[in-house]
Protein backbone atom coordinates (compact mmCIF):
# COMPACT_ATOMS: atom_id res chain seq x y z
CA UNK A 1 0.00 0.00 0.00
CA UNK A 2 2.88 2.36 0.79
CA UNK A 3 4.30 1.60 -2.66
CA UNK A 4 0.88 2.30 -4.15
CA UNK A 5 0.66 5.62 -2.36
CA UNK A 6 4.18 6.62 -3.36
CA UNK A 7 3.43 5.65 -6.95
CA UNK A 8 0.36 7.87 -6.87
CA UNK A 9 2.27 10.80 -5.37
CA UNK A 10 5.03 10.38 -7.95
CA UNK A 11 2.68 10.10 -10.89
CA UNK A 12 0.83 13.24 -9.87
CA UNK A 13 3.96 15.26 -9.12
CA UNK A 14 4.12 16.47 -12.70
CA UNK A 15 0.66 17.93 -12.43
CA UNK A 16 1.43 19.94 -9.33
CA UNK A 17 4.17 21.98 -10.95
CA UNK A 18 2.03 22.55 -14.04
CA UNK A 19 0.13 25.42 -12.40
CA UNK A 20 0.04 28.51 -14.60
CA UNK A 21 -0.74 32.12 -13.77
CA UNK A 22 -3.94 33.83 -12.85
CA UNK A 23 -6.69 34.30 -15.40
CA UNK A 24 -10.23 35.79 -15.44
CA UNK A 25 -12.14 34.73 -12.35
CA UNK A 26 -8.90 34.31 -10.46
CA UNK A 27 -8.19 30.88 -11.82
CA UNK A 28 -5.93 29.81 -14.67
CA UNK A 29 -5.68 26.64 -16.71
CA UNK A 30 -3.51 25.03 -14.03
CA UNK A 31 -5.85 25.74 -11.11
CA UNK A 32 -8.04 22.70 -11.50
CA UNK A 33 -5.30 20.13 -12.24
CA UNK A 34 -3.25 21.55 -9.37
CA UNK A 35 -5.99 21.09 -6.77
CA UNK A 36 -6.95 17.69 -8.18
CA UNK A 37 -3.32 16.60 -7.92
CA UNK A 38 -3.11 18.08 -4.44
CA UNK A 39 -6.15 16.01 -3.43
CA UNK A 40 -4.51 12.85 -4.76
CA UNK A 41 -1.23 13.75 -3.05
CA UNK A 42 -2.83 14.30 0.37
CA UNK A 43 -4.94 11.12 0.13
CA UNK A 44 -1.96 9.06 -1.02
CA UNK A 45 0.01 10.39 1.95
CA UNK A 46 -2.84 9.45 4.33
CA UNK A 47 -3.19 5.95 2.81
CA UNK A 48 0.58 5.49 2.98
CA UNK A 49 0.74 6.68 6.59
CA UNK A 50 -2.17 4.47 7.67
CA UNK A 51 -0.61 1.50 5.95
CA UNK A 52 2.74 2.19 7.63
CA UNK A 53 1.17 2.55 11.10
CA UNK A 54 -1.19 -0.38 10.74
CA UNK A 55 -0.34 -3.47 12.71
CA UNK A 56 -3.25 -5.53 11.39
CA UNK A 57 -2.33 -8.09 8.77
CA UNK A 58 -5.15 -8.55 6.29
CA UNK A 59 -5.69 -11.38 3.83
CA UNK A 60 -3.07 -11.66 1.07
CA UNK A 61 -3.60 -9.25 -1.82
CA UNK A 62 -2.81 -11.79 -4.53
CA UNK A 63 -4.14 -15.32 -4.90
CA UNK A 64 -0.72 -16.91 -4.58
CA UNK A 65 1.91 -17.65 -7.19
CA UNK A 66 -0.49 -19.51 -9.49
CA UNK A 67 -2.85 -16.53 -9.61
CA UNK A 68 -0.09 -14.10 -10.52
CA UNK A 69 1.20 -16.53 -13.13
CA UNK A 70 -2.29 -16.68 -14.68
CA UNK A 71 -2.32 -12.88 -14.96
CA UNK A 72 1.18 -12.80 -16.49
CA UNK A 73 0.12 -15.48 -18.99
CA UNK A 74 -2.68 -13.18 -20.05
CA UNK A 75 -0.82 -9.87 -20.00
CA UNK A 76 2.30 -10.81 -22.00
CA UNK A 77 0.49 -12.19 -25.09
CA UNK A 78 -1.95 -9.26 -24.89
CA UNK A 79 0.83 -6.65 -24.91
CA UNK A 80 2.73 -8.52 -27.64
CA UNK A 81 -0.47 -8.74 -29.71
CA UNK A 82 -1.20 -5.02 -29.38
CA UNK A 83 2.37 -4.11 -30.38
CA UNK A 84 2.26 -6.57 -33.30
CA UNK A 85 -0.96 -5.07 -34.68
CA UNK A 86 1.10 -2.18 -36.09
CA UNK A 87 2.90 -4.59 -38.50
CA UNK A 88 0.68 -7.63 -38.82
CA UNK A 89 -2.67 -5.88 -38.66
CA UNK A 90 -5.61 -6.80 -36.48
CA UNK A 91 -6.83 -9.87 -38.38
CA UNK A 92 -3.57 -11.85 -38.51
CA UNK A 93 -2.85 -10.99 -34.87
CA UNK A 94 -6.36 -11.93 -33.72
CA UNK A 95 -6.09 -15.32 -35.44
CA UNK A 96 -2.70 -16.05 -33.91
CA UNK A 97 -3.87 -14.80 -30.52
CA UNK A 98 -6.95 -17.04 -30.50
CA UNK A 99 -4.90 -20.01 -31.74
CA UNK A 100 -2.24 -19.47 -29.10
CA UNK A 101 -4.78 -19.47 -26.27
CA UNK A 102 -6.65 -22.47 -27.66
CA UNK A 103 -3.46 -24.52 -27.86
CA UNK A 104 -1.54 -23.20 -24.86
CA UNK A 105 -4.26 -22.69 -22.26
CA UNK A 106 -7.10 -24.82 -23.67
CA UNK A 107 -4.87 -27.67 -24.96
CA UNK A 108 -7.23 -28.25 -27.89
CA UNK A 109 -6.20 -30.45 -30.79
CA UNK A 110 -4.70 -28.82 -33.85
CA UNK A 111 -7.94 -29.00 -35.85
CA UNK A 112 -9.81 -26.89 -33.28
CA UNK A 113 -6.83 -24.53 -33.06
CA UNK A 114 -6.82 -24.12 -36.85
CA UNK A 115 -10.57 -23.54 -36.91
CA UNK A 116 -10.32 -20.82 -34.26
CA UNK A 117 -7.26 -19.25 -35.89
CA UNK A 118 -9.07 -18.86 -39.21
CA UNK A 119 -12.69 -18.68 -38.06
CA UNK A 120 -12.43 -15.93 -35.47
CA UNK A 121 -10.75 -13.30 -37.71
CA UNK A 122 -13.13 -14.27 -40.52
CA UNK A 123 -16.14 -13.76 -38.26
CA UNK A 124 -14.79 -10.44 -36.99
CA UNK A 125 -14.04 -9.34 -40.59
CA UNK A 126 -17.58 -10.21 -41.67
CA UNK A 127 -19.16 -8.49 -38.67
CA UNK A 128 -17.08 -5.33 -38.44
CA UNK A 129 -15.44 -4.69 -41.83
CA UNK A 130 -18.45 -5.71 -43.93
CA UNK A 131 -21.39 -5.41 -41.50
CA UNK A 132 -20.60 -2.33 -39.39
CA UNK A 133 -18.12 -0.85 -41.94
CA UNK A 134 -15.51 -0.38 -39.20
CA UNK A 135 -12.04 -0.41 -40.72
CA UNK A 136 -9.57 -2.19 -38.43
CA UNK A 137 -5.74 -2.00 -38.75
CA UNK A 138 -4.39 -3.86 -41.78
CA UNK A 139 -1.12 -5.75 -42.19
CA UNK A 140 1.92 -4.89 -44.30
CA UNK A 141 0.69 -7.61 -46.68
CA UNK A 142 -2.41 -5.52 -47.31
CA UNK A 143 -0.25 -2.53 -48.17
CA UNK A 144 1.57 -4.48 -50.89
CA UNK A 145 -1.68 -5.95 -52.18
CA UNK A 146 -1.14 -9.57 -51.12
CA UNK A 147 -3.99 -9.90 -48.60
CA UNK A 148 -7.34 -8.11 -48.25
CA UNK A 149 -6.58 -7.43 -44.55
Amino acid sequence: MVVAAVAMIDSRAGAMVDTTGREPGGVGAGFYPFWSAFLVFVCAAVVGYKSWRSTVTGPPVYEGREGIFAVVKLVIPMVVAVVAIAWLGFYIVSGLYMGLFARWIGRYNWLVVALLTVGMPAAIYAAFEIGFRVSLPKSFLYNIGVLPF
Binding site: R12, A15, T20, A29, Y32, S36, F38, V40, C43
Partner: peptide, 29 residues
Amino acid sequence: SPVKAVMMIGFGLLLAAVGFDTLTGQPRL
Protein backbone atom coordinates in the same frame (compact mmCIF):
# COMPACT_ATOMS: atom_id res chain seq x y z
CA SER B 1 -12.44 3.71 2.42
CA PRO B 2 -13.44 7.38 1.98
CA VAL B 3 -9.81 8.44 1.57
CA LYS B 4 -9.34 6.04 -1.32
CA ALA B 5 -12.59 7.28 -2.87
CA VAL B 6 -11.34 10.90 -2.67
CA MET B 7 -8.06 9.81 -4.22
CA MET B 8 -9.91 8.12 -7.10
CA ILE B 9 -12.03 11.24 -7.64
CA GLY B 10 -8.86 13.36 -7.77
CA PHE B 11 -7.30 10.91 -10.21
CA GLY B 12 -10.41 10.97 -12.41
CA LEU B 13 -10.54 14.79 -12.38
CA LEU B 14 -6.87 14.86 -13.41
CA LEU B 15 -7.50 12.48 -16.29
CA ALA B 16 -10.43 14.61 -17.43
CA ALA B 17 -8.18 17.69 -17.36
CA VAL B 18 -5.59 16.25 -19.78
CA GLY B 19 -5.36 18.12 -23.09
CA PHE B 20 -6.28 21.63 -24.19
CA ASP B 21 -7.98 23.80 -21.58
CA THR B 22 -11.30 24.71 -23.19
CA LEU B 23 -11.30 28.23 -21.72
CA THR B 24 -7.72 29.36 -22.35
CA GLY B 25 -6.54 26.89 -25.02
CA GLN B 26 -3.45 25.99 -22.99
CA PRO B 27 -2.26 22.36 -23.10
CA ARG B 28 -2.38 20.66 -19.70
CA LEU B 29 -0.75 17.50 -18.34
